[in-house]
């Protein structure tokens, strides 16, 4: 077999696999415009009506707002905790560094359902001890989402710190700049792309989380993903498809933006 034939086989196989991976997205976006009252193929016509219906559904609207709020706070938590920790991991060598690295990355490694269940139990235990409500409240959800975002922030920010020579910081320090001045005037501007990518990526992983949130949402405090799943348990119609399409557009935009700052493939 010639090189050309082999190349063609690889290209064809890759196209097939890529089509398989992308098929669900294409299908659901397509279906969101169907005029059919009950979801079926082929389309009897096309409409934008499902988008209006989706927005009229209180569960989706409130879920969307809760998800955005939660994700924004998760980004804040993960940056405040993750950027200093990344600095420590990359710029200092100290005993226990490997252990701290393992701890910081562990939320990525413990199964979402297991971590969610454990957090749920701990919250209930605390509620009994302190006589306050946590499990179905926003703070409880925020802790879980901070945990989801933190390891990704650490990954992306350490990657950009590793790529930055410490001599810039050393030069600033030797010219008399303090620790904080050095960080804000030298380090931060240089690693800004990594931080932006980390913030965008953290937003996405928090926004799409299902497994940890499922234990921690309460009445009136439901994230969009949970609202989608509970809707899907009973119905499958173009309303869901419309919500999904909006989510695909938002996340797609965020990911393409964050890929401009740091190659996302490196985060995996």
């Amino acid at each position: 077999m010639g090189i050309l034939a082999i190349n063609r086989i690889y290209a064809a196989l890759s196209a097939l696999v890529l089509a398989f991976v992308l098929l669900p997205l294409v299908a659901i976006v397509w279906v969101s415009f169907f005029a059919n009252r009950i979801l079926s193929f082929p389309a009897t016509g096309y409409t934008l009506g499902w988008y209006v219906r989706a927005w009229e559904q209180e569960a989706f609207r409130n879920g969307f707002i809760t998800s955005v709020e939660t994700a924004l706070v998760a980004v804040a938590i993960s940056l405040v905790l993750g950027v200093p920790a990344s600095l420590a991991l990359v710029r200092y060598r100290f005993p226990g560094r490997d252990a701290i690295q393992t701890v910081l990355l562990s939320p990525m490694v413990v199964p979402g359902i297991v971590g969610g269940a454990a957090l749920f139990m701990a919250f209930i235990e605390l509620e009994v001890l302190l006589d306050v409500e946590i499990a179905g409240t926003l703070p409880g959800l925020l802790i879980a989402h901070g945990l989801i975002a933190l390891p990704w922030t650490v990954r992306l920010v350490t990657a950009s710190l590793v790529g930055m020579s410490p001599s810039y910081e050393e030069a600033a320090r030797s010219l008399g700049a303090g620790v904080f001045t050095t960080f804000f005037r030298v380090t931060l501007p240089i690693i800004k792309p990594g931080i932006v990518a980390a913030a965008l990526f953290s937003f996405v992983v928090s926004f799409i989380d299902l497994e940890k949130s499922i234990f921690l949402v309460g009445p009136g405090r439901t994230t969009l993903q949970i609202a989608l799943v509970s809707y899907l348990e009973w119905n499958l119609d173009s309303t869901v498809a419309a919500v999904a399409t909006v989510q695909i557009l938002i996340i797609g935009a965020l990911l393409i933006a964050s890929d401009r700052y740091a190659r996302l493939a490196r985060a995996f």
């Binding site: 799409i208 299902l210 969009l224 799943v229």
Partner: peptide, 12 residues
């Protein structure tokens, strides 16, 4: 597609 979320992907 990986980051579109399990809910959306499953619905699809």
């Amino acid at each position: 597609p990986l980051l579109m979320g399990n809910a959306v992907r499953t619905a699809a």
